[in-house]
Design a protein around this nucleic acid. Structure first.
Length: 467
RNA sequence: GUCCCGUUCGUCUAGAGGCCUAGGACACCAGCCUUUCACGUUGGCAGCACGGGUUCGAAUCCCGUACGGGACGCCA
């Protein structure tokens, strides 16, 4: 049987890292077994679902490269089918009508809690026939929970999990307004979509037993389950959209690469020996859902930045250029033809040093317009009278140099030899003159990028600067 | 409250009874490299929650305790 997995978010907010990782695991598991990865939007909560959230989720998945193999299924379009199944169970005597109002049920729950009893439905209507007085009254359909024994789930991550059926109550599968409940809709959809492996957060683990009731009552094969531990927030609690959860797209906006984000997510709860940097292609070969651990984890932002730096270095200038340009524009910088040429020269050196795309853009700023940026106090302090005199001298010296990076390096070394000083003593003030900063790509490159005219102008400007 | 799940350096993890004097990565500290920064590199700091058992031998198996998380909805 072909493996089919699905990611089934509810569109009530942005996609956060927990959901993204679940989607990743689903895709990887499908790929590993030559199967299909699907997306189902669980939008049956009309009050909280929004089209914006749907779009956001799709954008997030697309950015991460987790696009489903088939068009997404919208759960809301399948309500007739959900109701059909519920009524079928009713007709078969595997479910029954219950006439309590939601208010009465809330009261029952509160009473149970107050008396320190488990807040379970007592099954009042399980064997009760509605009388004439119930004619036309709204009712919910509840499924009959198995009465004795236990329900066992062989979970691919959690192992064998069992629960006494006495813990289960007769849950509602169809509301009094005719709409399905989540626990019911999920089962019907997973069955109809021929899902073979349900990979989801372990907050659904205990729900699984209730879902099994529907699978079993319908005589359907249960899919394999794999309940992945949650990613916790900094406070150690379940990630929620309200409490510090980070949206996937925020990572993009922070200048991270999707490859790096996926790589980081992959390493949460799962490892393969000492491998840290794992590309998608490799992950599809070695990922095994059974290797996922059972403990919750947290995302370490510092480590993700480090991983991003590695991906940045492994990336190509061609790949990065559009990203950097986008960032530059976001900063209000629109590089012209000259600036673009400089950027392209700079890119290989910049990506070598950066942790994020933002770092690259920042590092290129000095070359995006004529004139050196205003130096900060620390850098300006390097421009002592002596240093400025040296810069003036250096400007003369370099004015006849061939303006190629290799030559410039040789000329600078010669200069420091002749003056019997360290290259560093020449390079640092020069760096400040050229970039307004003590940090830049190699000084020969920096000179070369700016071109003879602009470089010499900056050096002379710094040399002429009053104290 | 009831049920379910978990607990290896600060964080992510390796570890399926002897290979563990517990390995790697990030972060941190010190050194090296160096044209600044970054990279790289060398070394350091730091962990099997606790208590019982099983065994010749336990991070690994069993039981309990503590702590943490999750679920108990006519939400998903």
């Amino acid at each position: 049987m072909t493996v089919r997995t699905r990611f089934a978010p509810s569109p009530t907010g942005f996609l956060h890292i927990g959901g993204a990782r679940t989607a990743l695991f689903n895709l990887l598991h499908a790929r590993r077994h030559g199967g299909t990865f699907l997306l189902r939007i669980e939008d049956t909560d009309k009050a909280r679902s929004t089209p914006e959230a749907v779009q956001q989720i799709m954008d997030s998945l697309a950015w991460l490269g987790l696009t489903p193999d088939e068009p997404p299924v919208f759960q809301s379009t399948r309500e007739a089918r959900h109701a059909e199944v519920a009524h079928q169970l009713l007709a078969q005597g595997k479910a029954y009508r219950a006439y309590e109002t939601p208010e009465e049920l809330v009261a029952m729950r509160e009473r149970a809690m107050a008396e320190k009893r488990p807040p379970r439905y007592d099954g009042s209507w399980r064997d009760r026939q509605p009388g004439p007085e119930h004619e036309g009254k709204p009712f919910a359909i509840r499924i009959k929970a198995p009465q004795g024994g236990e329900t066992v789930v062989e979970d691919l991550v959690q192992g064998t999990v069992r629960v006494a059926n006495a813990e289960l109550d007769d849950m509602i599968i169809l509301r009094s307004d005719g709409t399905p409940t989540y626990l019911h809709a999920v089962v019907v959809d997973d069955h109809d979509m021929a899902i073979t492996h349900v990979i989801r957060g372990d907050d659904h683990l205990t729900n699984t037993f209730r879902q099994c009731m529907v699978f079993d009552a319908m005589g359907w094969h249960r899919p394999r389950f794999a309940h992945v531990p949650l990613i916790h927030g900094a406070d150690g609690a379940k990630l929620s959209k309200r409490h510090g959860a980070v949206g996937v797209l925020e990572f993009r906006d922070q200048g991270l690469l999707p490859e790096a984000v996926c790589n980081s997510l992959l390493r949460l709860g799962w490892g393969h020996g000492d491998e840290e940097i794992i590309a998608r292609e490799r992950a599809e070969k070695i990922f095994d859902i059974a290797d996922v651990g059972r403990a919750a984890s947290r995302l370490d932002h510092a480590k993700m930045l480090h991983v991003n730096g590695i991906w940045l270095r492994q990336s190509t200038p061609e790949r990065l250029l559009p990203e950097v340009l986008a960032r530059l524009r976001a900063m209000g910088v629109e590089p012209g033809a000259d600036a673009l040429a400089r950027l392209e020269m700079l890119l290989p050196a910049l990506q070598e040093r950066a942790k994020t795309v933002h770092d690259i853009a920042d590092g290129a700023l000095f070359a995006m317009a004529d004139g050196a940026p205003e130096p900060d106090a620390k850098s300006a302090a390097l421009l002592t009278p002596d240093a400025r005199a040296r810069l003036a001298d250096l400007a003369e010296f370099l004015s006849t140099a061939p303006w190629e990076r290799k030559d410039l390096e040789v000329w600078l070394r010669d200069y420091s030899d002749v003056k019997a000083i360290k290259l560093k003593e020449v390079a640092q003030p020069l760096r400040v003159a050229l970039t307004g900063s003590t940090m830049s790509p190699p000084i020969d490159l920096t000179l070369a990028v700016l071109g003879r005219e602009e470089a010499l102008a900056r050096i002379r400007a710094a040399a002429a600067q009053p104290t």
